[in-house]
């Protein structure tokens, strides 16, 4: 049982982080809070993927030592180096996540210019009032 917990507790903590981000996206009303929750969500998924490339038992960073032209005679063992593939994919994902955050913040500034608030329920109330006024006017 203890062995099972030691083998799996990392995944459980990643799930807890994902739950925190998802709750902030669903339950909070402030739009900046929703964005912070989206960042936490993305980072937890990236953390999960990076942790898939971990090898126990003396594996090091995937940078080869010695002759950089590859003509060296040293023998490369696969178990000596970490898995480089998740690192590459998550490098792309981090940059894409910051681009998403930038576009979302620009949209947020536009929303504030138009409604003068960032709370979701106040924005919905203003929109409802405006649409009722429009139907009354016509």
């Amino acid at each position: 049982m203890l062995e099972y917990i030691l083998a799996k507790y990392n995944y459980w903590i990643y799930v807890v982080l994902m739950m925190i981000g998802l709750y902030a996206m669903m339950g909070k009303r402030n739009l900046v809070k929703k964005l912070i929750g989206m960042n936490i969500f993305q980072t937890s998924i990236i953390l999960f993927f990076v942790s898939m490339g971990v090898k126990k038992g003396g594996a090091t960073v995937p940078i080869l030592m010695g002759d950089s032209h590859g003509h060296g005679e040293q023998l490369i063992q696969v178990a000596d180096y970490l898995n480089p593939l998740p690192h590459v994919l998550m490098l792309t994902a981090i940059v894409v996540s910051i681009a998403t955050t930038g576009v979302a913040l620009a949209t947020l500034i536009l929303i504030y210019k138009r409604y003068h608030t960032l709370e979701e329920d106040e924005i919905l109330a203003i929109r409802k009032e405006a649409s009722a006024y429009k139907t009354l006017g016509t």
Binding site: V50, P62, H87, I98
Partner: peptide, 17 residues
């Protein structure tokens, strides 16, 4: 991430994220 050995991801996160 540095502790997990993902050095490139770590300094991309420190500068960009």
């Amino acid at each position: 991430w540095t502790e997990m050995g993902a050095v490139d991801v770590a300094f991309t996160e420190a500068s960009v994220g």
